[in-house]
């Protein structure tokens, strides 16, 4: 048996590699919540009087987020509005949504729902069928853009000042490495505890209160707090690059504890040193179709829905081209 390094009384149940400490259940819960509260103070994420939207999926990260935020918002004096985006993935999101609902019931919160079908006229199940005909984009490429758009829309329509999302330290470290490997400096500059184009109309600022806790810690927290959450791989999961980085970071973390946090810290210090090149007001437009702030004529979500609408046409086109080539 290992004794808890903090209280030196109870048996430790968790081994926190990067801190060198072993914690019992109550000490781990206190540690986890302390880290989220600290992140909130450091970046001034949630303030008194805020109407705060929270993206919940039924998964462990957002379950942990919602639970901690009920404490944090009570402490700060802010209002909490859980939002679930239903991608329309039968056998997956519907099951997860039940867990999200159960958690909201437990916390006495009303869960707001918005579906891809309602916003884009097409569910993920339908998108994948269409996509299968052309196969030039992975399912996650559509889904990622749609989710961001739908969450923002729901939060905006509900009058939220900010939108909290369940991105944890693992997500942060992966995204930072990904931007490095893909050489996307512009994306880099927008990334952090707050994200997106801030202070634009029709845009709700996104915040990441879990950026200094790991994915594994979120799962431990939910388990120790006995929160309902759903664990299942999405049947359309297609972002293999992110998956590879996940595996890579986990093996590095196992051998060199603390690496994930160091990536985030290094990035944030670098960002401070770099002179931020703000995207000028002129360059930013509003999507001609839906009004979302974007840099082109239309936002990415509208471009992708259009692409899907034309998917059948594209098949014909592709076939035509192949035929001509054979000649």
């Amino acid at each position: 048996m290992v004794t808890c390094t903090k209280c030196k009384k109870r048996n430790a149940v968790v081994d926190l590699g990067y801190t060198g400490s072993d914690l019992c259940s109550p000490c781990f819960i206190a540690y986890f919540e302390h880290r989220v509260f600290k992140t909130n103070r450091e970046f001034k994420l949630i303030q008194h009087g805020d109407k705060l939207g929270v993206g919940v999926s039924g998964g462990k990260d957002s379950a942990a987020l919602l639970f901690v935020l009920t404490k944090l918002t009570k402490h700060v004096g802010a209002q909490l509005i859980p939002i679930l985006i239903d991608e329309g993935i039968a056998g997956y999101r519907d099951k997860a949504a039940e867990k999200a609902q159960a958690l909201c019931d437990k916390l006495g919160l009303r869960l707001h729902r918005l579906s891809y079908k309602k916003v884009f006229g097409i569910s993920m199940d339908e998108t994948v069928k269409k996509r299968d005909k052309v196969k030039w984009r992975g399912a996650c490429s559509y889904c990622g853009v749609f989710r961001k758009h739908a969450l923002n829309k729901a939060a905006f329509d509900l009058g939220c000042d900010k939108l909290a999302i369940g991105h944890n330290a693992d997500d942060m470290a992966q995204t930072i490495l990904m931007n490095f490997l893909k050489s996307e400096p512009a994306r880099f500059m927008r990334f952090g505890a707050f994200s997106g184009i801030t202070e634009r109309d029709k845009f709700v600022m996104r915040i990441k209160p879990l950026m200094y806790v790991t994915e594994r810690e979120c799962a431990i927290y939910c388990t120790l707090r006995d929160l309902p959450f759903h664990l299942q791989e999405c049947p359309y999961s297609s972002d293999s690059f992110r998956g590879e980085l996940k595996d890579f970071l986990n093996s590095v973390e196992e051998k060199h504890p603390g690496s994930k946090f160091n990536i985030i810290k290094s990035f944030l210090s670098l960002k401070e040193l770099m002179v931020a090149t703000p995207v000028s007001e002129k360059e930013l437009k509003h999507c001609a179709k839906c009004g979302t702030p974007c840099s082109g004529e239309n936002c990415k979500a509208c471009l992708l829905t259009e692409e899907l609408k034309n998917a059948d046409g594209r098949v014909a086109e592709t076939k035509q081209i192949t035929k001509n080539k054979k000649k």
Partner: peptide
């Protein structure tokens, strides 16, 4: 949930819950 350094006894049941999904 148990600390990984805990010694096992004959007949114990261990479960590893994979949490890393997309």
């Amino acid at each position: 949930l148990t600390h990984p350094s805990t010694e096992l006894k004959d007949g114990d049941t261990l479960e590893f819950v994979n949490i890393i999904y997309g």
